[in-house]
């Protein structure tokens, strides 16, 4: 859905893992931004009906960009800064907390 403008790097580029796939990221990106760059599809499926959803506001007020980050469910991706090697997982429906 989104792409990076060329010649804009002011900080380090590195990679993170999204559902097991390696994806490009840069210091200063949020998890939601990286997901928008990584693919066009849904970021999650709604906990009510399973409908496809993705980031809407990018400022923490819509709660659409909920993802699992390093094992912690329902993080607002637009408020989490990426770090090298971060493991991001899309959430399909209601998170499991019991193993």
């Amino acid at each position: 859905m989104f792409q990076r403008l060329p010649d804009t790097a002011t900080a380090a580029d590195f990679t993170v893992e999204v559902d097991g796939t390696t994806c490009a990221a840069r210091a200063g990106d949020t998890v939601a931004a990286v997901l928008l760059m990584a693919g066009d599809g849904p970021m999650r499926r709604s906990v009510v009906s399973g409908a496809p959803r993705a980031a809407y506001c990018m400022m923490g007020v819509c709660f659409e960009c909920l993802v699992e980050v390093d094992g912690l469910p329902s993080q607002q991706g637009c408020l989490v800064q990426v770090r090298p090697g971060m493991r991001i997982k899309r959430q399909n429906g209601r998170p499991e907390i019991a193993p």
């Binding site: 906990v47 009510v48 209601r94 499991e96 907390i97 019991a98």
Partner: peptide, 21 residues
């Protein structure tokens, strides 16, 4: 809490899970 995947919790006076999860 947010809606969570179902656990087979019985009704209790301190913690319980609704049908919406």
């Amino acid at each position: 809490t947010e809606r969570l995947a179902p656990m087979s919790l019985l009704a209790a006076s301190g913690v319980r899970q609704t049908r919406d999860g």
